[in-house]
Every structure is written in structure tokens, then in C-alpha cells.
Design a protein around this nucleic acid. Sequence first.
DNA 1: CTGAAAGCGCTTACAG
DNA 2: CTGAAAGCGCTTACAG
Lengths: 338, 338
Amino acid sequence: MGKFMKDKLHDNVTIEDVANYCGYSRATISRVINNEGNVKPLTVKKIKMAIKELGYKPNANATALSGGKTRTIAILLPEIWRSYYSTLLDGLEEVASEKNYYILVRTKNYKEAALDLLRANRVDGFIIRNTKDPADNIDFVKKLDRQNFPFILIGNPIPGYNFPSIKIDNIGGAREMAHHFAERNYKRILFISGPANNVDSNDRAYGFKLGLSEKGINFSSVIHVEGDYSKKSGYEIAKNTLKENRVDAVFAANDRMALGVLIYAKENNIEVPGEIAIAGFDDAFFSEYLSPPLTTVKPPIYEMGTIAMENLILMIEGSVQRRPKIILPTQLIVRGSS
Amino acid sequence: MGKFMKDKLHDNVTIEDVANYCGYSRATISRVINNEGNVKPLTVKKIKMAIKELGYKPNANATALSGGKTRTIAILLPEIWRSYYSTLLDGLEEVASEKNYYILVRTKNYKEAALDLLRANRVDGFIIRNTKDPADNIDFVKKLDRQNFPFILIGNPIPGYNFPSIKIDNIGGAREMAHHFAERNYKRILFISGPANNVDSNDRAYGFKLGLSEKGINFSSVIHVEGDYSKKSGYEIAKNTLKENRVDAVFAANDRMALGVLIYAKENNIEVPGEIAIAGFDDAFFSEYLSPPLTTVKPPIYEMGTIAMENLILMIEGSVQRRPKIILPTQLIVRGSS
DNA sequence: CTGAAAGCGCTTACAG
DNA sequence: CTGAAAGCGCTTACAG
């Protein structure tokens, strides 16, 4: 057959065409496509042959409409740009495409979009990364939960609820940092937390405190100042605190604030780590390029993506009810700043 | 699972429900949804009211199946992780969501996926960022073109064809860099290109040559060495070249190779820019954090995303045939390294 | 093991 | 301006 004919076939082949081609009914073709069993092996073979020869692909919209799955998963993120999110997305997509799923990514006004996706039956499941305020999309999440519609929360789960979720071990990571500080014999410590209501930051504070006390350092001797996760707040807090207090080491609840502290130290000729050690949390993209490179806690973001997607697909395809609650270990990365 | 589907269906209000609710036929409801005109204003009003009250959203699969659009756009990328791609994605999504489209993102084995998306009628259009070898997906692109299916190529277009595309002005950017070098009075120049067959790199080489000649500098006096875009190749080339040649300035076809040169210079106590100036192309995420910060050419990646999506949507919705060919200007960013 | 037939929720000529 | 009806390409009880 000519090139043109071939293309034409490829473009419009329906289940009906396959049925006519090999002399079975649409129902049987459908059974073979969906591996339903209860079809004679020879028939399966013939039909698979026909499908291949005609280059048949089921129309996804028809499949979804008639009760089948969409094989697409919605991923709701606050933004894409930051490496945190793009790395996460990378992990999510890795597994999705491997398992033959498509991903629909949404950031802008995603609450509204989520409802639309659900109602329009566009997806089989949701991966949801909360915005700053975890309670923001509580209504939608509850709705999913009520309908038993598959979803997984990524990052900070919604406090007070027991939804399927995956997050990093903030407590463990900060605890390790505390141990590191103890080993280095840093005694006079400044801890800069994130915003007061931030779950991550609170966990990091708790873990840090825990780790210090395990090494016999009382948290009450630690200067604790609240920042807002911005570079600027790190800078300002350093400026306000370091003049009046002797400090051996600073632990900021994220790398951006640690960067602010580092910039302040450089501007004021404070030697790092000679006079003051500095550490952060996140292993931000810039951290290894600073001078000195920043000691930090690296969260397994890519793995969080792959594991989240694996679990979601299990929820979608599995007959068993699953409510995974996963916590992934972090990794302490000691660099030149401590 | 049966129960689950049933529940879900019950939960969803259909066009039938709207029809019953307000006493018009499904056909008329459909007309109102699609703003078709030819409906009495009062009827429109009543129906819109009913839609709102019932919280009705059309089932996307039914719409697509019965000849409507999917309102989703496939984005094919070689990868997501690098900031180039995530920034691009950000721009693409910004416009897509604003115009009420969803995006389907795919990186892994995307050629195969693309064909599937097309056949299964899952999307209204394609945004395609070529892999290293632009000819790699030539068959698919030709197929789209033949079917008059909307798509736009991003980045390096396929040589020899006239497909709708958008890219940055590599020539103009490198030309500006040449002018900058001339102003700084750098005479002995090392140019490190990318791989020989790389379209971007060739354009940058051409633009650099052009810019130098405009300032009376003969390109033949420039040492031209071919790299492979990696940090390592920048490092190696610096090592092999800078020992035996006096060089005032290095222009690498991307920032990663420039970083390699910078690392070599630091290791060998060559002062930058005192003894050798270094510049790159791309404004990579690390470039502003280096010491000294790297002079480079910043491509308008985010804008490339927004403009590409705007044009694609015009192609999808517009009645007019459009084959946009867009080239976006870059921006020279002079930092401490030159 | 297989098929006929009834949907799934829309759109779109066709008629009036 | 509006509705009845056919159809988009699948899946899934129901029968045999």
C-alpha cells in the first residue's frame, strides 16, 4: 500500500475498523485491548495482529467517556519555575510516562482548575502540592476524599487530617544538623525560623531542638528569631542580632535566609566559618556555588516525585484501598560554611 | 470500583440535567455553552442561570468525542529539570491557563507519546522543543503539517523546512557580545563553540564573527576551538589553549563552558577579568553567583513561552491560516567577568 | 468464549 | 429561535 494510504489508515482507525478487519465484534476487540481474559488465545493473537497492522490506537475521549480511565494525572503546583518544583515534576513525570500515563500540569489559580478537571472527568488522580496555606484547598481535598477519588498530598500535609501524603523528614534533617553543630562544638547558636505558622519550619525547629538536647545543649541558650524565608529577612536578622551577641553558628530554616546571613557576614568582614559558621536547609540551586559553599540539608525531591507517582498509580489501579503516609529521609551536606 | 464510578456519575451534573432544569433541549443548552448565537437573549439568560445554579461543567471527553475541542495542549520537551525548560514551561502555562487551556507535559520518549496523543485526539495543538537532533522528529512534524494540525517549534527549527517556529536571536546576541569585546579592547580572543552540527552554536559563531568584523577585528585572528557545551570541555580547552597562547578574552557559546574556563583560571591564579575576561551565553542560573559573576547573553525564555502559546492558540482558534516565524531579541548582561 | 445492544455526555446537521 | 435524532468511539452488562 502506498504511503498516503498508510497515513490515512493510521489517522482514522477505530475499533470498528479493527472489528471488520479481523471478523470479530467491537466487544471482543475491546476485551483484548483491556486484557480482560475470557477470550480464546488464538482470537487474542489474531486481534492483536490486526491492531498492529492497522496501527490502531483507542480514542482516549471515547474510552474515558464510556467509563474507562483517562490515563492522565493532574499535578497541581504553586509554581513551576523554582528548582524545587521542576525537580519534583521531573520525578513525577519519570514514573508517569514509564507507566504510560500523561500528566496535566497546572499552577495558576489551580483550585478552580482542579474542580473543573474533576467534574469534566479529565483525570484519574491528583498530585497536590499545597500552597503556603495548606488549608487553602481543604474543601477540594475533602471532596476528593469523600468521593474516594485517588490523590496524594505532597509536602506539608494539612494539619488535623489524615489524607494520603508524602513529605520529607524535616525533623530528622534538622536533628542531624544539630548533631553536626554539636560535633563542631558550636555553642552560641542563632536559629532563624520561617514564618510562625509554617509546618516545615516548625518541624525543623523541633528537630533542631531535639538534636541539640540529645547532645546536652539546651535550646533555651539558643537565640531564636523568626524570619520569613526570604534572603532579606536573613540579612536583616543577621544585622540586628550579630552585633549585640557573640554567635558561633547560624542555622537558618532555609538556604535563602542563610544566604542573607552570608552576604551580611561578607559585607562586614566576618570570616565564615572561622568566626561564624552558617548552615541552611533545602540545598538550593545556588548553595554549592557560594563562597564558601553552604552547609545544608538536602531533601530528596526527585524521589518524592517518583514515589508519589508510584503510589498514586497504585491507588488508581489497585483494588486495595491505600492511604499512604510517607516520610522520606533527608541528607546532611557539609560544605565549607561550617 | 463499579460503585465508585456510579457515585461519581451521580455527583456530576450533565447537559441533560440542565435541560430538564430549565425546560430547554440539550441542543439549545449546547448552543449557549458554545456562544453560538441564534438563541433568544432571554433564553440565553435563563440557561446561563441554570448552568450556574447547578454548577454544571461540560464533560470534556464528551465534548472532544463529539467533535469539539479538547482545550488541552501538548508540550513536548527533552527534559524539565533545567531552568531553561522550567522557565519556558512557566511562560507556556501562564498563557495557557489564562486562555482556559490545560497543558499536557511530556519529556520521556516523546516521539512515541506525540503520535499517541495525536491519534487519541487528546490535544488541540503541540508545542515542540526539539531534542539535540532537530531532524529526530521530522516525520511527526511533517505529519502535523500535512494534516494542518496546529503546532509551533520552539528553539532550533528544523533546517530546510518552513514550519511555524519561535526562537531567540542567537546571531544578534553574539554580535552584541563581539561589540562589547571590541569596546573593552580585547584583541586576542578565544572562541569556544558548541558541537559542530548545533544550530544555536553555529548562529552564535556567525553573529560573533559578524560583530567583530563590524569593529574591524578579523575573525581569522580569533582562536576557534570546538567544545561540546559541557563544563568539562570548557575546562579542557582552557587548559590546552591558554598555556600556549596569550589571550585577552574568552567567549564560550554557553555559560557552562564559560564556567569551566573560569574554574581553570581560578585554579591557575589567572586573574579574571584582569588577565583574561570570560563571557558566556544563556545566563544560566549559576552565572550571577560566580565570582566574578559571569558576563553573558540572556535569552528571553519566559517570553518565548508566552508568545509561543499565544500564537498556538491563535492558530487553534483563528479562522485564518497562520504560520508564525518569530525571532526574539536577546539581552547582553555585562557582569564582573569582563 | 463471543456478539447485539444500550449507554457515556456531548455536538450538529436537519426540520420546522 | 428551538427541538428531535443521529452520531462521535468506546465499554459493559446481558444472553447465549
